[in-house]
């Protein structure tokens, strides 16, 4: 599994209120959530993001409330992967459960700038910066996490698993 796209870079402690402000939580519709993703720190995000693009941010990404809407909004906006030195615990869990790929790689975050073009290989954990030619190694996902992400999240994964055993 590989993804290619350009980088949107943000700082530390991007919280769930910034990812999807509480005033939009009256819907669970992914497309509607995506229409307001990141708007409080980057009002151009929604108009500029293209399928495959990546968010690269500072430590403790996704801190704040436990809302599952946050990874849903990011994923529905087309983002293929979030790279940060660390994630808040509940966001980490929710992201995987909702099928959003996330990678922890402090070195990569330091050396990647806004607008760079990346290629990320989920099988090997290699993050390649096409703009600068630099390569970084993150921990690749184990097989079952890759399957959860491929199945569009935990519910899809469980449904598939059920089918296989029945």
């Amino acid at each position: 599994m590989k993804a290619k796209g350009k980088v949107f870079k943000y700082g530390a402690n991007v919280d769930t209120d910034v990812i999807i402000p509480a005033r939009y939580l009256n819907t669970a519709e992914p497309a509607e959530l995506a229409a307001h993703c990141m708007e409080d720190i980057d009002k151009d995000f929604v108009s500029r993001v293209e399928p495959g693009d990546m968010i690269v941010a500072g430590p403790n990404f996704g801190c704040g409330s436990s809302r599952e809407h946050a990874p849903v909004a990011i994923k529905a906006s087309g983002v293929s992967c979030v790279i940060a030195p660390s994630f808040a615990r509940i966001f980490y869990r929710n992201a995987i459960n909702m099928g959003l790929a996330i990678m922890e790689c402090p070195e990569a975050v330091e050396a990647i700038s806004d607008g760079d073009k990346l290629e990320v290989d989920f099988d090997t954990g290699v993050i390649f910066n096409e703009t600068t030619g630099k390569r970084f190694q993150a921990e690749p996902f184990p097989e079952f996490i890759k399957k959860i992400i491929e199945s569009d999240g935990l519910v899809g994964y469980i449904s598939r698993k059920k089918e296989q055993t029945q």
């Binding site: 436990s66 599952e68 509940i90 459960n97 996490i145 935990l154 519910v155 059920k162």
Partner: peptide
Amino acid sequence: GVGSTDLACAMVVGQTW
């Protein structure tokens, strides 16, 4: 402690990550 999606899926398969 986990979220409601985790609870749902755990009730189906009896395992989680």
